[in-house]
Design a protein around this nucleic acid. Structure first.
Length: 224
DNA sequence: TCATTAAATTGTT
DNA sequence: AACAATTTAATGA
């Protein structure tokens, strides 16, 4: 079974770190499990950990001013998040929900800051990650106005294939239509229909418990 | 290796 | 939400 220990070795950000830095990071981790449907953290909570997904799937969402729930990102195995809240020492601005049974590797604040102060490799990773998130956030601004459920499903899917934020995925991802529905904020039925329509348009291929993306570029820009 | 069964996922109404 | 069909995983011959 995969552990936080394994995760650190294979983590993208560890590739540029020196051995002693990796060892230091490893000691700063604790591992926690969350069952399907449970909250990792509510909006407004103080959570002083930088977090990586060992196994499972996490939804990162917030409630817009109009009261609509909207998802900013999904994180699967190999995905990392929370650097913003730890760096700025503020409460979380988003809800974190485990969409399936999930195990998380959580790095304590002091170790995170030690890496931040001492490791250029870690900083290179942070810059890349923040930059990538910025790009996704820009795309999300208009997302609030998009009502077409097909487009919501398409964009949420494309996020999961972001090679920087979600390095675990190659050309395909293991996700059920129910889970994708939870991510996109649509019912399972609608997720099902949307996927079939998107398959018709040649953007992806639907298989059992798995989705293969054929045209990530068009998927990420999909607007109906 | 193959058949049977239970559980999960998907397709449809 | 309910139901049928399909796929997977587990079990044992």
């Amino acid at each position: 079974m995969a552990t936080a220990h394994d995760l650190v070795r294979s983590a993208v950000w560890a590739a540029e770190l020196a051995e002693d830095e990796i060892e230091r990071a490893r000691r700063g981790f604790t591992e926690r499990s969350f069952s399907k449907g449970s909250y990792v953290c509510h909006r407004g909570d103080k959570l002083d950990y930088w977090t990586g997904v060992v196994t499972g799937l996490v939804k990162i969402s917030a409630i817009s001013r109009s009261g609509k729930a909207m998802t900013f990102a999904g994180a699967g195995p190999g995905g990392w998040f929370g650097e913003g809240s730890v760096l700025k020492d503020e409460p979380r601005k988003y809800d974190l929900v485990a969409i399936r049974d999930t195990r998380l590797a959580m790095l304590n604040k002091s170790t995170f800051f030690w890496l931040y102060e001492n490791s250029t490799g870690f900083n290179r990773f942070l810059v890349r990650q923040l930059n990538e998130r910025m790009g996704q956030f820009i795309a999300t601004i208009e997302y609030d106005r998009i009502l077409d459920p097909k487009a919501r499903v398409a964009r949420n899917l494309s996020w999961l294939f972001n090679p920087v934020l979600y390095p675990g995925a190659g050309g395909h991802i293991e996700i059920t239509q129910e889970e994708l529905g939870l991510l996109a904020g649509v019912s399972r039925q609608v997720a099902n229909r949307s996927l079939q329509a998107l398959e018709e348009e040649g953007l992806l291929k639907v298989e059992h418990e798995r989705i293969t993306v054929l045209d990530l570029d068009r998927l990420s820009k999909y607007d109906g």
